[in-house]
Design a protein around this nucleic acid. Sequence first.
DNA 1: TCCTTGACGGAGA
DNA 2: ATCTCCGCCAAGG
Length: 103
Amino acid sequence: METVSLQQRVWQVVSEVPEGKIASYGQIATLAGAPRAARQVGQILSRLPSDSRLPWHRILNAKGQISFPDDSEAYRRQKQLLESEGVVFMNRRVSLQQYQWQP
DNA sequence: TCCTTGACGGAGA
DNA sequence: ATCTCCGCCAAGG
């Protein structure tokens, strides 16, 4: 019986993304058992409690870009968190080849 | 209830 | 490279 919510599975998978690595919304959705629910992953992360310790900043879109407007505070915060872990941005995107998490 | 709105993504055109 | 269409589904009006 599947009683665990998608939210719980997403939280679990996101918690496994290691420092210095990134994963896409779609990748998290697939690993959480909902292959085409990338959109929900974003929705779930947007509702994380403020005291959450989940590494939400390690989740980028499928192109390796941050999913916030380039000029937003959220964009700068996420980018700073990733750079502090050694992730390098080139033209507002990261190299999936180098940084994508391989579970 | 019904409708809209998203931190998305893959397939087509 | 760019754009539209649609799936998925929880929240809020």
